[in-house]
């Protein structure tokens, strides 16, 4: 048997690989692509990313965004220039009252939760965490075993 240097081997393999014709695509590919294209075309533009929006809407969106940014900057400028701050805060607190209610409910729920948590004996707590960790490790191990025995061999 002859010996091949790495260079000869490279040339030989290159020749063999480059000599291969293109693989024939499955017949189902064309139908699949066209079905996917049709399905995508049926998705309305407002469910697609910005680049697929009609030009008029893109322009309108840009104008609106620019106007909104300008309004925010103008508001800061006016505020800085001496707007009646106490009247503004009163107005805002009236209009955003629902937010403060939500905040109070969230704080109350947090307090209840921390009281319940504090009342759990540490043994139960650590035991529970241990059981959760054990279950997680078991399912992870089962998944790995299933993959190694069932999936990988196909």
């Amino acid at each position: 048997m002859n010996q091949m240097t790495p260079e000869e081997l490279e040339k030989f393999i290159h020749r063999q690989l480059r000599d291969l014709p293109a693989r024939t695509a499955p017949q189902s590919l064309e139908a699949r692509v066209m079905a996917a294209v049709r399905q995508r075309a049926l998705v309305p533009w407002y469910h697609k990313s910005w680049q697929y929006w009609p030009k008029a809407f893109r322009m309108g969106f840009l104008l609106l965004a620019t106007a909104a940014a300008g309004a925010v900057i103008a508001a800061f400028h006016l505020g800085d220039a001496g707007i009646n701050k106490s009247a503004f805060v009163t107005e805002a607190s009236q209009r955003l009252g629902i937010l403060s209610k939500i905040y109070r409910v969230a704080v109350w729920m947090g307090d209840i939760g921390s009281q319940v948590f504090a009342s759990i004996p540490p043994v139960w707590l650590y035991g529970g965490l241990g059981v959760v960790a054990l279950c997680y490790a078991s399912f992870f191990g089962l998944g790995a075993a299933a993959y190694r025995t069932l999936y990988r061999n196909h």
Partner: peptide, 24 residues
Amino acid sequence: WSFFSDLTRRDDDGGEKEVEFAAP
């Protein structure tokens, strides 16, 4: 799947050597 599979990668030395094959 890297955790699940045993895609063992030989850490080859990379040294070039002549290989015995039939002549091309």
